[in-house]
Amino acid sequence: MSDSEVSEAVAQPRTAAGVLFFDEVDRVLLVKPTYKPGWEIPGGYLHPGETPSQGAAREVKEELGITPPIGGLLAADWAPHPTEGDKLLFVFDGGILTPEWLAEITVDGVEIGEYAFHELDQVDALLIPRLARRVHAAFGARTASATAYLEHGVPHS
């Protein structure tokens, strides 16, 4: 049977990328959106033709006004949403933000109203559960110099 004879549906996930930035004591930077409650990591959905690392860098520039180097991939998460469909989410390592980068941060005021560094043990109270799981897994991957593959924020063995 040829490809033209088989019409099979394939996944077409919405794809997003975010970045974990840290301060000198390993607190993680979170941003507070203006359009919904709670906190997020810097990032967002990719544009057509954009790679995950390019999208992550663009979102950081849009949301925080800075262009620090974006490091390696910490986590990839297959996380379908009940109403939004399939999602594939990438988390990159932004490393420690130097005082120079911190001095240049300017939240856009449109999407992002504020930013703050938080202890890792605070993220469960600040983030939606699956994002909190993703952040914990990405933090663990960073510590282990590894990349985590997740499903719904849970490491897949």
Rank of each mutant, 00 (worst) to 15 (best):
A103E: 11
I128Y: 14
P52C: 05
S145P: 15
F22C: 00
H152C: 01
S2E: 10
Y35C: 02
F92S: 06
S4I: 10
E5D: 14
E63W: 05
G109Y: 04
I112P: 12
A76H: 02
H81R: 04
R130E: 10
Y149D: 10
A57H: 08
E111D: 13
V91H: 07
Y115D: 00
L102Q: 13
A76D: 02
K61Y: 12
L20W: 06
G71K: 08
E151T: 14
V110K: 03
V19W: 13
Y45D: 04
T98L: 05
H47G: 03
P42Y: 04
Y115C: 00
A116N: 08
L97V: 13
V19P: 15
H81W: 06
P48S: 02
V10S: 01
W101V: 02
A146Y: 07
V107Y: 04
L88Y: 08
Q122K: 09
L102E: 11
P52I: 07
T147K: 03
T15G: 07
E8V: 14
T83R: 11
L30R: 11
F117P: 15
R14I: 09
E63H: 05
P48Y: 03
E24I: 13
L127H: 04
W39I: 04
P99A: 03
T34A: 06
K61S: 07
L64D: 02
G49R: 01
V10I: 08
E111L: 12
T147W: 06
E40H: 14
G72N: 10
V31H: 09
I112T: 09
F22P: 06
P155S: 01
H118R: 14
R134M: 15
G153P: 14
L74R: 09
E104F: 02
P42N: 01
P68K: 03
